[in-house]
Structures are given as structure tokens and as C-alpha cells.
Design a protein around this nucleic acid. Sequence first.
DNA 1: CGCACGCCTTCCGTCGCACGGAAAGGGAGT
DNA 2: ACTCCCTTTCCGTGCGACGGAAGGCGTGCG
Lengths: 271, 271
Amino acid sequence: MPSVPSVPPARRPPIRTAPGRSATSRALSALDAFDDGHRTLTLSAIARRAGLPVATAHRLVGELCGARLLHRRPDGRYEVGARVWQLGLLAPPTSLREAALPHLQDLVITTGRTVHLAVLEGPRALIVERLASSRTQSTRHSPGGYLPLHCTAVGKVLLAHAPPALCAEALRAPARYTDWTVTDPAVIRRQLAAIRAAGFAQTSQEHRRGTWSAAMPVTGPSGVVAALSVLAPLTAPRRADALSPLAAAAAALSATVLDLDLDGMTGEPAS
Amino acid sequence: MPSVPSVPPARRPPIRTAPGRSATSRALSALDAFDDGHRTLTLSAIARRAGLPVATAHRLVGELCGARLLHRRPDGRYEVGARVWQLGLLAPPTSLREAALPHLQDLVITTGRTVHLAVLEGPRALIVERLASSRTQSTRHSPGGYLPLHCTAVGKVLLAHAPPALCAEALRAPARYTDWTVTDPAVIRRQLAAIRAAGFAQTSQEHRRGTWSAAMPVTGPSGVVAALSVLAPLTAPRRADALSPLAAAAAALSATVLDLDLDGMTGEPAS
DNA sequence: CGCACGCCTTCCGTCGCACGGAAAGGGAGT
DNA sequence: ACTCCCTTTCCGTGCGACGGAAGGCGTGCG
């Protein structure tokens, strides 16, 4: 048999590996291929990570580039486009962030500590903003990242004011991060009651060794919408001095937030 | 013939209004229906603004919600989902923003003025971050917004270091914003040369009445990647005092940016 | 109170276009 | 020169996207 079949018009129909994924979901899975550790990807990397054939990925990525959701860099690699960033600015976390930024700055200046602003998203705390004083650079836990609810100050504040169903879910199997992490649901529930009574939470090394933090709720028209926290090294003297500025900032931010419309983000996880 | 045709299986085939838009582009046009003045929309509003039939919009929006790119609020309206915000954090402006934030804070503190950080995007300046001191709240020109190139300090700095083709495009028909806006391309070109020589730009009321601003370039491995500016009311005394801190911040930020990989965003507008 | 209007949702027959295997065209490393 | 990987184009197939229609719901008006 000659190795040069000059006329192979008998094209085998491509095996439809498309199980039930819609065209749109494929395109979105291409976007999902990007994450914090993979900010730029080659075409084949996108295809691999998204589970798509290369030819399909090529077409979809081309469309996403046309819509400026992806950007092709001069070297041929792809990255998330500025358009996505702009669209993201319309999402709820941004309104909160904008309203909070001046207060966060004040808090950083007066305490000299790193501050966090987080909201409840499903069974985790979504970090909306993190501000450090100019020399305290710790790139851990950036905006967009998550913190556990049961062993961080922001998390406990959010959990203390969360619907019971969510609370039960979060306390089903509390993960251990350090030797000081409290993993007994009953103990945590008592802590939450105390937090509701006292109006603030503090944790010491429950999430990371050597770190202490305190958090207070930010309240909107419909209850607690966010939590504001101050971090300090365990060795820092006069840590408790941060509580007063923290309370002031939380109150000021709550007043600002009253003008905002911050619904959603607290609904059921998914339908 | 009775008015109750119990069996109307003769379904008229729907008139395919699908001209050439791909399935993906339709879904993305639904996202595009959201903008700064329309952060929440009803389903039919999305359909109207995206030019889609309601039934189609319903299906696409459902998929986008499944991917968490949209979020359905309890009241039934839709808003951009937190997922988009998170994805946007992977886009190039965010790396720059993260690197710049401490320096911007320093600059705000030492000058007491509002500061802007902007990058070149097509024939406009994209505002990456805007920071005001805690009491100077002006919600105009937020991050994600655009500034013209020919009549703002950041714009002139970016334009002064832009490729000639882009410069020509930007100066084709300079828009007039105030009585002080310079619209003569030749005059602007002379200004740009002076800016290249002096290393900084200043404008007075060219974009907005009563506002003065100065800007300096932020340089990366491959040239100017952004512009940093300080705004002040025209009536403020000792405005020029801001120049020295501005230079310090721009230099410090440039040093930080050297470690970053900030390509793209300077390529041709679209393919 | 009845009607009209607008919004949301579901259904389903048709056919346009999304699909992906194959092969060709680079470019870099060995 | 050979191999490996990435990218890009081509094109026949068949399946899932498409959208008109109808029904349910809430609201405002006469």
C-alpha cells in the first residue's frame, strides 16, 4: 500500500467529545485556565488546562481576544485583558472597596498595621482589599483571595452574623492551620456568641503562626456586609491600641456604606 | 374552523436573525450591556441593550450566572459577578496597581493631593488607580475610566513617549474641554518635546477648570509603562512643592516596576 | 374590577455554525 | 538533520444554539 494516499476525501467525522458543555461554557473554561499562578499562558497551555482540543481553543481564544477579554502579548502568550479588569470594577466588591479606601488609609496610618477588608462569599471570606503601610510588604492574601471563616478575625466576625445554615456548613469540618487553630465546632460557636456580644473578634496564631488580628463588622442597611481587621505581629507591643482606631474606622465605613446598595453576595451558593 | 386549534404542530421556523455573530460573542455582548451607569439590569434590559431576543438572553444569562460571571440578586436583577472581579485581578493593570499602591499612599500623605496612576491604552489614558486623601472625595475619574491624552498631565507624559503612529492619531482632532485646552497639534508637539526634555508635564485647566496637575513617567524594562500625577486646585498655594515628592514616588515606583513583567497594553489597538 | 402592559420562563422544530481531527508551517533545542 | 512542541488553517459532519410563541405573574391604570 503506497504511503501517499493522494485522495483521502473520506474524512472521518470528528468524535464529538462534546458531552453537554455549551459553546459558551467552553469559552469561559478558557478564561478559567488563568489563575494566580498562571497569569500568562500559551495557546496549548490554555487548551490543556481547560480540557479543550487545541483547534477549539484556538478558535475560542481568538474570539475572546476580539472581545478584549484576553490579550495576546507580543511574544505570543495570552493574558487576561484589561477589559475584564474594567468589567470587574462594576462588580459589588468594587463599590465597597471604593467607599472603604479612605477609611482603610486612615486606619493604616494611625495603626501602622496591615488592614484587611473582607466579605462573606459562600463558606469563605473574600478579601476585598488589603492595605499595608508603605514598608510592610507582605504579598500574602491579596485582594481576590480567600480566608477561612473559622480561624481568622474577619472570618469569625462574618460567621457570627451569617445565616445558621452557612454557619453549620462552615463548622462541619474546620481545617487546622496551626497548633492554635480551634477545630471544635462547639467551642467556635461559643466564641461566635461572645463576638456578637462584644462587637469584635480577635484571634492569635489560629491561622498563621506569629500573627494576631482583630476584626469588627461593617454594617449596611441589611445587616453585616463586611468585616474590617487589623493584623499585627504577635511580638508587637500595645497591640490592643489598634482596637480604638479600628472601631472608629468600622463605624465611619458603616456610615458610608449606608448610602450604598450592597445586596447579593449573600445569597445561596448556587442554584 | 374552530378558534381552538388543539394541534398546531406546524411550527414556523424561527427567522434566523443571527447574522454572523458567534455564540460566544452573543454571550459577551450580554456582559457588555453593563457599564458604569448600569451596574444592575433586568433580563429584558440586558436583551435590549445587547440587541438579543429575550429568550436568547435568558439562556445566555443563565449560563453566565452558572459561571458566576453574572450574579442574580434576590430582587431578580442581575449584576456583574465577583468572579469577573477576581479574574480582572489577574490582568496587567492589577500588577501595576499592587506595586504602586504603597508609593501612591506615600505621595498622598506627603502632598495631601489626589494622585492618579494611568497607562496608555489605545488613544486614551486608562486610569489604573486614583487615591485621594481621606477627606478629598471626588468620585470623578475612577479607576477603569479614561482620560484624554492631549490635555491632561498623565496623558501628555504618555503621549510624549508613545510611538509616532499613536501620537499622530491622538493629535488628529484634539477635543476641546475648556477655554484653556490646547488644540493645535503643532503646539502640542512642541510641548511633548519639552516634556521629554524636562522629564515631567504640567497642565493648568486644560481638561477641567480650576484644576492643575503635574505628571512624571514611570519607566519599566522596556520604556515608559505608566504615568503618575498629582492634582491640585488652581488656588492651592505652593503647588510646585508637590514636584519633589512626585519625582521621588515616580523613581521609587520605577525601581519596583523593574521586577515586573508589564508587556502588552502597548500593542496595536486591535487586529 | 377588569384590562393592558411588561417581565420572566418554558417549550420545541429547524438548520447554521461550532466542532475537532488532520496536516502543514514555524522555531528551538539536541 | 532530526525531533519535539506550538500554532494555524482547512473542512465535512451533525448537534446544540436559536428565537418565536405561549403561559404565568405582578403592577398600574381607567
